[in-house]
Design a protein around this nucleic acid. Structure first.
Lengths: 185, 185
DNA sequence: TCTTGATTTGAACGAATGTTCATTTAACCA
DNA sequence: TGGTTAAATGAACATTCGTTCAAATCAAGA
């Protein structure tokens, strides 16, 4: 019962203050427990970070694979764009941590996380590649375009606020317009 | 003589390990001095971070204002794109810190940094606004496009390596192609 | 060589860190 | 109710942290 609450507290605190700046005592206090009790649920602080990032990336990939990924490259790119935006504004803390705390992973954990991240990246890259092959897309450089698209889409998290000016549907539409233009002449 | 070397060591270490994970003793050791000696050059660790971010953003803005900022909106956007890419791949550590360590600033310092960052953002937004006004550009949402462009351009730092496949000139060209398409129908 | 002024050292400070563990408390079934 | 197991406490541990400061060292001009 307390396990998930620890994860949630760690996620929130890591997102706000950063992994290195958050103490086990702060996490415990957020859960309403003493620091020692946390160690019934996690072997150490590092595992808390790794589990957050790992489960985030796994859920991201599972959710993507559950989308309708059929159709023309253009349709698939639209699906990816809308999925990515939607997923990211729904889980801002997990996304933020996955971007900001890579350097606080142990080398072994970093390697595992990188593998997951790279697999997701390749999903987009493959769509672009297929679109290049059938001439739906014309991009100046496949790899750079992949990275540029991901940076652009993920960047939504740095400024989007749920109670802001734009609805989620409008946001997806705005981003799709920009993505679509980027890959066509 | 030691002042700049402290700044350089702090910049490198903060970029690699993060502000919170770097100790004054590590910085001192990098400079070849004991921790106490640092305090002849900085009042505290926080000032070290603030000065790094502040001088980076001020140099960024000064450098931009020194560019040729005349011409049509399209020409100005091209100048901005190439300048931004060039500046960012030349100073990866300063850029990285300015993005990652915002939350480790005191509230007062954060406010000052935000003002600088916002001023730079507005330079791009103004170019887009002018292009919208004279119908050079058609964008679905001015503010979102500004943020999306900045995220896309700044993202270059997460993957670009000086000894990589692409030259700086080629990189500027690839990014300009993508930016140009994004703001035209 | 002596003096003055600026730097650096190295020890010390109080506080905070992640983690452990014997002991206490709580939960639950017989 | 009594007995068993699981969970939480709270103190303790060895380190490390940012920062201070008297004392030692250094640089340079008289």
């Amino acid at each position: 019962m307390t396990g998930p609450r620890i994860t949630e507290a760690a996620e929130r605190l890591f997102a706000v203050h950063g992994y290195a700046a958050v103490s086990m005592r702060q996490i415990a206090s957020e859960v309403g427990v003493q620091a020692g009790a946390l160690y019934n649920y996690t072997p150490d602080k590092q595992s808390l970070l790794y589990e957050l990032m790992s489960s985030h990336l796994q859920l991201l990939m599972e959710s993507w694979l559950a989308e309708n990924r059929s159709g023309t490259p253009t349709e698939r790119l639209k699906t990816f764009t809308e999925f990515h935006i939607r997923y990211h504004i729904d889980r801002p803390d997990a996304v933020f941590i996955a971007y900001m705390e890579l350097r606080n992973l142990t080398p072994a954990n970093f390697a595992k996380i990188e593998t997951l991240r790279r697999a997701y990246e390749l999903e987009l890259e493959q769509i672009l590649r297929d679109g290049q092959a059938d001439r739906s897309f014309v991009v100046p450089d496949l790899r750079v375009t992949t990275m540029a698209l991901l940076a652009m889409l993920t960047g939504v998290n740095t400024w989007y606020r749920e109670d802001g000016r734009l609805s989620r549907a409008r946001l997806e539409s705005v981003y799709w317009t920009m993505v679509r233009r980027m890959v066509h002449i």
